[in-house]
Amino acid sequence: MALDQPLNSLGLAKAPKDTRVVVAMSGGVDSSVVAAMLAEEGYDVVGVTLQLYDHGAALAKKGACCAGRDIHDARRVAETMGFPHYVLDYENTFREAVIDEFADAYLAGATPVPCIRCNERVKFKDLLATAKDLDADCMATGHYIQRKMGAAGAELHCAADPARDQSYFLFSTTPEQLDYLRFPLGHLASKAETRALASKYGLPVADKPDSQDICFVPNGNYAAVIEKLRPGAADPGEIVDMDGRVLGSHRGVIHYTIGQRKGLGIGGLEEPLYVVRLDPDARRVIVGPKAALSTRTIPVREINWLGDAPFASQAEWHVNVKVRSTRPPAPAIVRPLSASEAEVELLTPEDGVSAGQACVFYAPEGSRILGGGWIWRGR
């Protein structure tokens, strides 16, 4: 390879035709556009779709990914653009690495985020390893996030379009994975641009709706999935106040989340009550006033750090954090307890912080993601 070879659009010093790219294709418009775009640029594109759960049951489900109709759509895109496409059966891996933990987390009173675990344990682990086995120079996905080169190497940055940003779901991407991954859509200003590109390439998925809900949870009814996986998970129990007084009964702890107000069935009280804690062992839902939801200190573990200096090299890091995907980042102080655990102090208390959710770290200025971890202990 010539030392003066210019970098291609993927940041590699090779001609596109000599650069093999595995594109993770879910069957949706985003990953399809990535594959088509790179194929048109002359890259040696290989499309790979993971079958993650029973595609027979998912065929009729709208808004799913990685099963049934979506596998068919990904294959049609590959045929349209003229590159090879493979389907890999990852059902067992997905069930063990994602679905089982999802069910167990709810049984333990937590509120899991399975999309993060799927990226971490399946797409950016097993699929990435497969890409390397195929002698690919890199792996590209349709995620809305940006990879930028900094002084110390590849950095993870928020998408240019805040409405599409997926940084919360990708905080656990490791530096080693980031070296190999590419996100060609992260710089786009809107989803409309993506759909315009799909139309330009004549893709059969140009008008396909975005995926909704958790891919393996039909119609958002996660409780039904958990009951099927863990019989008895929806056993009824008591709703009690913070002093232990019984206020009513519930239809299973798995139906409730921290901060929930509606659907408690305990009307006629002087002030509205919210779910402030779940006790799955005693099958109790504990409720209290809104003030009881306020949280300032959050224990976090399984930290993935993407900063330039080692995580535990400082007594504290002043960052912004996001404790739910739908909330904006807010100022906080992260105090490392080890290389993988920390205590996070929110400068402004937040309501409804729940075990099982992610706590994602952002640079106080700019768009860089500094990593994050998992909230591991409820109130």
Score class of each variant (00 low, 15 high):
145 I>H: 02
123 K>W: 04
166 Q>T: 08
160 A>D: 01
137 D>I: 02
174 T>F: 06
174 T>W: 01
148 K>V: 15
155 E>G: 04
141 T>N: 14
144 Y>R: 01
160 A>F: 02
133 D>W: 13
138 C>E: 10
161 D>P: 01
130 T>N: 11
160 A>L: 02
174 T>D: 08
144 Y>S: 06
142 G>Q: 05
164 R>T: 09
163 A>P: 01
165 D>S: 03
149 M>A: 10
149 M>D: 13
138 C>T: 12
159 A>N: 12
155 E>Y: 08
137 D>T: 13
135 D>F: 09
132 K>L: 11
167 S>M: 10
135 D>I: 03
168 Y>T: 00
157 H>S: 07
165 D>L: 04
131 A>S: 15
146 Q>D: 01
126 D>E: 14
138 C>R: 05
138 C>L: 06
148 K>P: 00
147 R>D: 00
153 G>P: 03
171 F>H: 07
130 T>M: 12
160 A>E: 07
142 G>F: 00
167 S>H: 12
151 A>T: 14
129 A>R: 14
141 T>Q: 10
130 T>D: 11
161 D>Y: 04
150 G>Q: 00
134 L>K: 05
136 A>E: 04
124 F>Q: 05
159 A>L: 10
127 L>E: 03
128 L>K: 05
158 C>M: 15
164 R>C: 13
158 C>R: 15
129 A>I: 05
145 I>S: 00
160 A>S: 12
162 P>E: 10
137 D>R: 07
160 A>P: 02
154 A>F: 06
150 G>W: 02
161 D>L: 00
162 P>G: 09
124 F>A: 04
138 C>H: 06
158 C>N: 14
152 A>S: 14
150 G>M: 00
147 R>T: 09
146 Q>H: 00
155 E>F: 05
145 I>R: 06
169 F>W: 13
160 A>H: 06
148 K>R: 15
152 A>H: 11
150 G>I: 01
148 K>H: 11
128 L>W: 01
174 T>K: 11
164 R>S: 13
165 D>G: 02
168 Y>I: 03
143 H>G: 07
123 K>T: 01
142 G>T: 05
151 A>V: 13
159 A>T: 07
148 K>W: 10
148 K>D: 09
152 A>V: 11
131 A>L: 09
155 E>N: 10
133 D>A: 15
174 T>R: 12
172 S>K: 09
166 Q>V: 04
155 E>A: 08
136 A>V: 08
139 M>V: 11
134 L>I: 10
155 E>M: 14
170 L>I: 03
130 T>H: 14
153 G>R: 08
154 A>D: 06
142 G>V: 07
130 T>G: 03
165 D>K: 05
172 S>V: 02
158 C>S: 15
171 F>N: 04
160 A>I: 04
172 S>G: 07
140 A>L: 00
156 L>P: 03
163 A>C: 09
136 A>I: 02
149 M>R: 13
126 D>P: 01
140 A>V: 04
125 K>D: 15
131 A>W: 03
142 G>R: 03
148 K>M: 11
141 T>A: 12
143 H>R: 06
156 L>E: 04
163 A>R: 14
167 S>R: 12
132 K>S: 09
149 M>Y: 13
139 M>I: 09
133 D>I: 10
123 K>P: 09
164 R>Q: 15
150 G>E: 05
123 K>I: 08
